[in-house]
Simulated assay, not measured.
Amino acid sequence: MNQPIPVLAAGDDFVLNRLLIEALHAASDASSWQPRELELPWPHTPFGRIAEVDEASGSEEAMIDALAGVRVCLTQMAPLTERVLAACPDLELFAVSRGGPVNANLAAATAHGVRVTYAPGRNAESTAEHTLALMLAAMRRVPQAHDSMRAGRWDSRLFAYQATGLEIAGSTVGLVGAGAIGGRVARALVALGAEVLIADPYADPATLPDGTRLVALPELLASSAVVSLHARLTEETRGLIGAAELAAMPPGSVLVNCARGGLVDYPALATALREGHLFAAGLDVYDNEPLAPDHPLRSAPNVVLTPHLAGASRATARRAATLVAAEAARWLRGEPPRHCANPAVLAAS
């Protein structure tokens, strides 16, 4: 009889070790595995850079101890560095339950023969819903009304024409990016009665949701009452929405960003809000996180801010665990991974 394979669940207080192990047992024979657990301190302790990798939690020392003799690791935030890899020669699969494995040194993993997998789309539903929540909250000025009620007021002045909000139905909404999240947002907006424009140079028009139209970014900015960002952050898209782009948006329009903070010049956005060119903004991501106490967005009017929570749902945590467990099951069966971040390691093996 084969001996069970040591596997490390390096979870945290979002993607729980319990979820990782339950998903592993659901995806393959439970008797095939010998689970170990390492609990990382995120989100109670912010993630950050560890050695040469980004957005990681825990420490190299804890990983080296926990990975002794382990062949498979399921995690969200654990650091996979050159030092960890050199100290853990038994490791073969490092399955990261995130859309991008920035906490793994891919070049070093390839050199050590370790497959690194990732989990695209794990938070698409949650982020699409959060986008709509921020959009509606900003357009209908929900935070201002909430604050007035909590302060003991019944502020009927919010019914004055100039104080009232905007509707999605009948509005033109522009989406910058039409991937898994943008596509979901587009379908919801069409159902709510919006005219939806999409700017995405890589989109196939045949795959766009019904009721949407593909346009260039300048046309989208000039035509949209609401602009929502769903693009990846690359050298091409960094600073995509700056002062000139904000000025090109119609007076009284709204900007929403649940994608990446680096897409937007946020000081310029704060100015556009203070000067009244934009009606409102809804933001979940920032140029530097956590957002500094003196950041101009904190004092800008008519802005709804959340602390990078768009992907934070229980369903996302369960999907994340399911996706990495499926990669472990493929490894167990001798099959190639579905989402490999360092495919060169497959050719080498």
Rank of each mutant, 00 (worst) to 15 (best):
L8N: 13
G11I: 01
G11D: 01
D13V: 01
L19W: 09
I21N: 12
L24W: 15
L24I: 09
H25M: 10
A26K: 15
A27I: 07
A27V: 03
S28A: 15
S28M: 08
D29F: 05
S32R: 14
W33M: 04
W33P: 03
Q34P: 05
R36F: 11
L40I: 01
L40N: 06
L40F: 05
P41E: 12
P41S: 07
F47Q: 06
G48W: 02
G48N: 06
R49V: 00
I50A: 04
V53M: 02
V53P: 10
V53H: 10
V53C: 06
D54G: 04
S57R: 08
G58I: 01
S59W: 00
E61N: 09
E61S: 12
M63N: 15
D65E: 15
D65P: 13
A66V: 02
L67Y: 14
A68H: 11
A68L: 15
G69C: 07
V70P: 08
R71Q: 10
C73W: 01
L74I: 07
M77C: 11
M77V: 04
A78N: 08
A78K: 11
R83P: 04
V84A: 12
A86I: 15
A86G: 14
A87P: 11
C88N: 01
C88D: 00
L91H: 01
L93T: 00
F94Q: 05
F94Y: 12
A95N: 07
V96T: 03
S97K: 06
R98V: 11
G100F: 08
L106Y: 05
A107W: 09
A108G: 09
A109P: 11
H112C: 13
G113H: 10
V114S: 13
V116A: 15
T117L: 05
Y118D: 04
A119L: 06
G121I: 03
R122C: 07
R122S: 12
A124G: 08
E125W: 12
E125P: 09
S126C: 02
T127W: 09
A128E: 10
E129P: 02
T131M: 03
L132P: 07
A133M: 04
M135E: 01
L136H: 02
A138R: 04
A138M: 08
M139I: 00
R141D: 00
R141A: 01
R141P: 00
R141G: 00
Q144L: 01
S148R: 15
